[in-house]
């Protein structure tokens, strides 16, 4: 059922889609976007891959089990909440720090970004678990 066009297109699309999902993830800090839809786009990328090359192949290129992505994401999200606790504020309080890179460039980092990264990983993991196991059934 694999068509050459789809297979070739997928090869070129996948990096771009993954890049786009990362773009959505980081843009979500101040603008529409965020971990949830970023994660969905990333998961959709892998699902597209599984449609073309089969689920087994997708699991191979994923390298980690989707379950572990979920575990990691939950831990990252929770750790981002704990930053607030360690600075004597309630759990999940947003904290921003400025990292000074060389030549006066400043990088504005906040805990919500890490929370979003956690969400991103959880969404990828959960979506892939559900859809890959459905796809494997038949």
């Amino acid at each position: 059922m694999t068509s050459v066009i789809l297979a070739t297109a997928t090869r070129y699309l996948m990096p771009m889609l993954l890049l786009f999902s990362a773009f959505l993830l980081f843009r979500g800090h101040n603008l529409p976007g965020g971990g949830f839809i970023g994660g969905l786009v990333a998961a959709a990328t892998f699902i597209l891959h599984s449609l073309v090359f089969g689920v087994g192949e997708t699991r191979k290129i994923l390298r980690v089990r989707p379950v572990k992505l979920m575990g990691l994401g939950l831990l990252i999200a929770m750790a981002s909440g704990l930053v607030g606790v360690f600075t004597r504020a309630p759990f999940l309080t947003g904290k921003w720090y400025e990292l000074v890179l060389g030549q006066g460039d400043k990088w504005h980092v906040g805990t919500p970004v890490f929370f979003d990264v956690g969400v991103y990983l959880v969404v990828i993991g959960a979506t892939l678990i559900i859809i890959l196991s459905l796809a494997e059934e038949d």
């Binding site: 959960a126 559900i130 196991s133 459905l134 059934e137």
Partner: peptide, 20 residues
């Protein structure tokens, strides 16, 4: 919506497995 998406996806898997 997100919650019902998750729950219904699970239900779908459960139903298909059960009826099989």
């Amino acid at each position: 919506i997100v919650i019902s998406f998750g729950v219904l996806a699970f239900t779908l898997v459960l139903f298909s497995r059960t009826f099989k």
